Amino acid sequence: MTPDQRRAIEQDCARLIALYANRNDAARWHEVAMLYAPEGRMARPTAPDEWIEGRDAILAAFLARPPRATRHVCSNIVIDVLSPVEAVGESAMLLFTGDPAPKVGSFHDRFILTGEGWRFAERRGSLLF
């Protein structure tokens, strides 16, 4: 793999993280779910050991949420390319909600290249405070 190919994968996966935050904040749940591979899985930062598996189940979990205003700020994004079709990443997350204090945590991601492009195979959140 050339350095340019590696950088392209890193950029595509970093963009996926930003799309996830923006679509989540806009409550565009169908579009959020489509960022996952069909068999992808997610664990929310508030429940990092409770996996929600499959794109349909992820969509149902988002649709079941009560409405709320949020703003996710993601930074310190580091993507490690494992192969031409797989990468992992970590990013810091700051979540502003209607709660008095913001929540600070991180996401650990696994990405795979699908026929639809790069998608989350796995997204696991955790809270620091």
Rank of each mutant, 00 (worst) to 15 (best):
M1T: 09
Q5H: 15
Q5R: 15
R6C: 14
R7I: 15
A8Y: 03
I9Y: 03
I9A: 13
Q11K: 12
Q11H: 11
D12N: 13
C13Y: 06
C13A: 06
C13D: 04
C13E: 06
A18Y: 11
L19K: 09
Y20N: 02
Y20L: 02
Y20K: 03
Y20S: 04
A21D: 01
D25Y: 07
A26I: 00
R28C: 07
R28G: 01
H30I: 09
E31N: 04
E31Q: 12
E31W: 10
V32M: 09
A33V: 06
M34R: 15
M34W: 15
L35M: 10
L35K: 05
E39D: 15
E39K: 04
G40D: 01
G40C: 07
R41E: 14
M42S: 10
A43G: 02
R44L: 05
D49W: 05
D49A: 14
I52P: 02
E53W: 02
G54L: 06
G54E: 02
R55I: 10
R55Y: 11
I58W: 05
A60D: 13
A60M: 11
A60K: 11
F62Q: 07
L63T: 08
R65V: 01
P66C: 14
P67I: 09
R68I: 10
A69M: 08
T70G: 05
R71S: 10
H72P: 04
V73K: 04
C74H: 02
S75W: 00
I77A: 11
I77S: 07
I77T: 13
V78C: 06
V78R: 14
V81M: 13
L82W: 09
L82V: 14
S83V: 07
S83M: 03
V85N: 15
E86A: 13
G89H: 08
E90S: 03
E90K: 10
E90F: 12
S91T: 14
M93L: 15
L95K: 04
L95P: 00
T97S: 15
T97P: 12
T97G: 14
G98Q: 11
D99T: 05
P100G: 09
P100K: 13
A101R: 14
A101I: 13
K103L: 13
V104N: 07
V104A: 14
V104Q: 10
G105I: 00
G105R: 03
S106D: 09
S106F: 04
F107L: 12
D109L: 09
R110G: 03
F111D: 10
F111A: 06
F111W: 11
F111N: 03
F111K: 01
L113D: 03
L113M: 12
L113G: 05
G115H: 13
E116S: 07
E116L: 12
E116I: 05
E116M: 06
G117W: 07
G117K: 03
W118P: 04
W118I: 03
R119G: 00
A121C: 02
R123S: 03
R123V: 00
G125I: 01
G125F: 01
G125V: 00
G125D: 02
S126D: 00
L127Y: 02
F129W: 11
F129R: 08
